[in-house]
């Protein structure tokens, strides 16, 4: 089990990801993620200082589209598929101060 990963960190990560974990789930997740991180420790020894990060498999640059309007989706169809449409909008529970 990893000495790097504590259940506090996993709990914080779960909050960031908006996932609720029961105490048992938190314990299991901490153990499983810890095992994975131990396994991933194979890269710790690598000296990668001179290696540039690679984020895109195929190097492309300057991909742009012209500023031309295309048809929109139908609002009724979109709102018809929404969990809580109201007055042409998406209704959500109150946003508490401090969110976002």
């Amino acid at each position: 089990m990893s000495d790097r990963l504590t259940s506090d960190v996993v709990a914080k990560v779960a909050r960031l990801a908006r996932l609720d974990l029961t105490p048992a789930e938190l314990e299991q997740a901490t153990a499983q993620l810890g095992d994975m991180l131990d396994h991933f420790a194979d890269i710790d020894a690598l000296d990668l200082a001179d290696v540039a990060p690679m984020t895109q498999p195929y190097p492309l640059v300057n991909v742009m589209r012209p500023d031309v309007v295309r048809p929109c989706l139908d609002r009724d169809e979109v709102l018809g598929a929404a969990p809580a449409p109201q007055d042409g909008r998406f209704r959500v529970p109150p946003v508490l101060a401090g969110e976002g």
């Binding site: 991909v63 742009m64 589209r65 012209p66 500023d67 295309r70 929109c72 989706l73 609002r75 979109v78 709102l79 007055d87 042409g88 909008r89 998406f90």
Partner: peptide, 24 residues
Amino acid sequence: EPNTNIDPVTLGLPGALPVLNERA
């Protein structure tokens, strides 16, 4: 009118992808 200028990208629909506006 609210929610009339919407497309898959604006709505963040699954599978939608952004393409950069040259004029912007």
